[in-house]
Amino acid sequence: MSAETPTPADTAVEAPADAAVERPRKRQARGERRIAQLLEAAGQVFVESGYAATTTNAIAARAGVSPGSLYQYFPNKDAIAAALAEFYAQQLDELMAPFAQVDPATTALEEALTTALGPIVEFHRRNPACLVLFVAGDAPGHVADLQAPLVARTHAQIQALLGAYAPRLPERELELVAMVTLAAYKGVLPLLVSAEDADVPALRRELTALLIGYFGQVTGRRA
Rank of each mutant, 00 (worst) to 15 (best):
L131N: 05
A85C: 08
V47R: 09
Y88P: 04
P98H: 10
K77Q: 02
F87S: 15
P190G: 03
G118D: 15
F74H: 09
A198V: 11
M96D: 11
H124W: 15
G216T: 12
P149E: 08
A152W: 03
A83C: 03
A53W: 06
R222W: 15
A152Y: 07
G50D: 04
R34I: 13
T208W: 02
L161M: 10
L192G: 05
I35S: 09
F87I: 04
Q44Y: 02
I120Q: 07
L95H: 07
T55W: 12
F134Y: 14
R204T: 14
A85K: 01
V180H: 10
M96K: 01
P201A: 03
R204E: 09
R172P: 02
D78T: 15
L109E: 03
A9E: 14
V102E: 01
A89R: 08
E196W: 05
A20N: 05
A79T: 06
A79E: 11
D103N: 13
R125A: 05
T7C: 05
A202Q: 10
A29V: 12
A108F: 00
A184Q: 06
V151Q: 11
S66I: 08
V188R: 12
A183F: 04
D10W: 08
F74K: 00
L210S: 11
P201F: 05
I212N: 03
T208G: 04
A53N: 15
F87V: 10
E48L: 03
Q90G: 10
E122S: 09
A52Y: 06
A139F: 10
V193D: 05
K77A: 03
R25L: 15
L39F: 02
A79D: 10
F134P: 00
E175T: 11
I59Q: 01
A29S: 12
R168K: 14
V151D: 14
E32F: 07
L169V: 11
G43W: 01
S2V: 10
L207A: 07
P6H: 06
L113D: 01
H124A: 08
L189I: 07
A164L: 11
V121Y: 00
P149V: 07
A17P: 00
A116F: 03
T11I: 13
A164D: 04
R25C: 08
Q44V: 14
P201S: 06
G118H: 14
A209H: 12
R25M: 10
D103H: 06
I35C: 11
P75F: 06
L131I: 11
S2G: 12
A144N: 09
M179P: 00
E110T: 12
Q90I: 03
R27L: 14
R205N: 09
F87M: 13
A58Q: 14
D93L: 13
